[in-house]
């Protein structure tokens, strides 16, 4: 268990959603998930749609669903800037599923669509549904 904690801030254009400390944070980076502990090398990364897991005493204490943005990591701080963010507990599963269906319908209606490559909207909605589970 880490002795020092990392400061985490999750910010959306509308508000500061989460601000606090954690032992470890796992962020869904654009190139794959990455975990952040205190003393991490400074890094900038894109963030894809997914859940941020906040660890305290080797257990996940909070999960936040985020969509589209950036993460900035310094040795004691992790700042996540995203367009939308909500606590996983607050996700309305029915709304998420509806969004997924709508996105899939829109995708199949789109004549330019390449098979096997989901539109960003579908990917985001899928991530939202799986986060709700």
């Amino acid at each position: 268990m880490a002795e020092e904690k990392i400061e985490l801030e999750i910010v959306t254009p509308a508000k500061l959603l989460f601000s606090g400390v954690a032992d470890m944070v796992v962020v869904p980076g654009g190139e794959g998930d990455f975990g952040v502990l205190t003393g991490h090398a400074p890094m900038l990364s894109t963030v894809r749609a997914g859940t941020i897991d906040i660890y305290e005493d080797d257990k996940i204490t909070a999960q936040v669903f985020v969509e589209g943005g950036f993460a900035e990591v310094t040795d004691e701080r992790c700042t996540v800037l995203v367009e939308t963010a909500m606590m996983v507990a607050d996700i309305d599963k029915a709304a998420a599923e509806k969004r997924l269906n709508d996105a899939k319908a829109a995708q199949s209606a789109d004549s330019d669509h390449v098979d096997g490559l989901d539109s960003p909207e579908v990917t985001a909605a899928e991530a939202m549904v799986s986060a709700a589970d």
Partner: peptide, 16 residues
């Protein structure tokens, strides 16, 4: 409420 986002965005861009 909108200020923190804009400020951090500016800081990040400034660093970049």
């Amino acid at each position: 409420q909108g200020r923190p986002y804009a400020e951090r965005m500016e800081r990040m861009l400034g660093e970049l």
